[in-house]
Amino acid sequence: MGLEEKLPSGVLLTTVEAVAGYARKGSLWPATFGLACCAIEMMAVGGPRYDIARFGMEVFRASPRQADLMIVAGRVSQKMAPVLRQIYDQMPNPKWVLAMGVCASSGGMFNNYAIVQGVDHVVPVDMYLPGCPPRPEMLIDAILKIHDEIQGMKLGANAIREQNLEEAAALTAAPTLEMRGLLR
């Protein structure tokens, strides 16, 4: 986002990457995006027993402009989808999205006219967390996995190289149609 993105590839950049990743994962601020049942469990994670403050994340920001992580906690209705997208757009880069619960991940048990069948129809999702609702421990686990991802995030030239590699891999990957046998 700033100077670090302009560094040339090499030892210096990898060191800056590690420091930036460490700092970013250590103060990842979630946006409050509670929708339904999962929101209550998300608040429980902020409560005393599960205490998300241990991971530097107790500051649930009311304004998306101050947040890095959007935890989509609950079922997203067709009416809510544009609001969700707007909030995502208001968040500054770099940003991450965690689809909490089956409803946000895939529509879950509500396969009907009212619910968006997975929030990935609206915003790019970094982590899917199943459960109805997931236990607070599961949410913490998902958050820690996002932390790992953030720690290993590339910057500048390295990020561009990584993106190119990912795109090349995606282009040569076998489509689901051609997959055979037990898909697991």
Partner: peptide, 11 residues
């Protein structure tokens, strides 16, 4: 209201 309409009664 209606931002959490889930269609439960229909389901």
């Amino acid at each position: 209201i209606g931002y959490l309409h889930t269609g439960i009664e229909k389901n």
